[in-house]
Amino acid sequence: MKPQAIHSVRLVFAGMLCACFAAAGCDTVAPVDEAQVVVEGFLNSGQPLQPVFVHRTLSPRQPYDAAQAAVSDAAVEMRLGDKLVRYTPDPGQSGRYLPEGNGAGVAAAGDVFSFSAVWRDAVVEANGVVPPEIEILAVSFEIPEEPVSAVLLDSLALSDTLATGAYTGYIYPIEATIEWAAPEAGFFQEESWVRAQLQPFTTFSSPIVDLFLRSDEVFREQTQEISAERKTWTGVYAVSVPEEGDPLPEHGLRVSLVRSGPDYARFAASRDDPDQREPVSGVQGGIGIFAAVSVDSVHVQVDRTGGAFPSPQ
């Protein structure tokens, strides 16, 4: 479903940018008055080149100011295969850099890239290989007949007091299995990592429950089972219901896969790590990420009778 892949990258892109801004506002190991460069950019396999964002950290002793954090005078360029691509500041948005030709170039699978952003004395660099394109071939579901009792935590009620916001509710733990084509033998296999995500569109949202499920995972692609040249991954997400006997409500589910090299995998896996003050940086000489990925996503409607992709004809 490649038309959805571009939209998926934008969603991931926005999430990563927020993570970097959060890191920029933190007291890092560097002196608080020494600015570090924060870079955010992606190459999406088979897609036109996208903008790159360059910002700098600010002192935590001052209120965060996005305009002040934006860097608009950096020298940004990338060598992609045998081509040199220069990025120029976007006059309509500070800190945003556009590739030459308005993204007319395409990141092709197997292209080697070398990226750099130079600002004052800082030189931020990243390099890697554009991965093969990934495509979701099928999604299937295992839905229990009845909901199960679960102790839920209301994160809005958590405080420094003994109050936990805990209450007993009911959830349907739903297994979703994703199938996709394995990369060609000998190409990118040892370097290939995949991030799989299940994102239900429901009113229920509990990060605490999600910790005990498996709705978002980063793993080495070669470790996954393969059958008929297809890889599979099974995750679990939850949908809550008010009462024990209530049926599963119909809901939408966004299923996405991101294939990448190890730099993006480390960055993505560390974003929600409670032991990390900020994500593991995917660049040298600064903070943030510049990486090549391939993204695909599908939207599936799920109800008590199940759901499937592709939809039965």
Rank of each mutant, 00 (worst) to 15 (best):
D82V: 05
A108N: 12
E179N: 14
I287H: 02
D275P: 01
N127W: 10
G307N: 03
I6Y: 12
L49P: 04
L58Y: 09
L257E: 10
N44P: 02
Q93H: 05
G235Y: 05
V258R: 10
N102A: 15
Q197P: 04
K83V: 13
D27K: 15
D121P: 06
P131H: 08
V255Q: 02
V302P: 08
A35W: 07
F141E: 05
S260T: 15
V258H: 09
V12R: 10
R230H: 11
S72H: 03
F113E: 00
G101W: 07
T223P: 01
C18P: 00
P89L: 09
D263P: 06
T161M: 00
G128I: 02
G186I: 03
A69L: 12
A176P: 01
V293F: 07
S206Y: 06
S281D: 09
V151L: 14
V129G: 06
S294T: 04
K83L: 12
L253C: 07
P51L: 00
E145H: 13
P63I: 01
A70R: 08
T57C: 07
A185Y: 03
V241C: 05
L257G: 09
S149W: 02
S116I: 04
G186R: 05
P310D: 01
V54M: 03
W193Y: 15
L156Y: 13
R96C: 10
F53P: 06
V236K: 00
P99Q: 02
L156G: 07
I143F: 02
L84E: 12
D65T: 10
L153Y: 08
S114D: 13
V139S: 00
R254E: 07
I136E: 04
A14F: 01
P131Q: 07
D73K: 05
T164E: 08
A19T: 11
E175Q: 14
E100D: 13
F309G: 03
T305L: 09
D263Q: 15
F201D: 11
D296T: 08
S140F: 01
V9E: 12
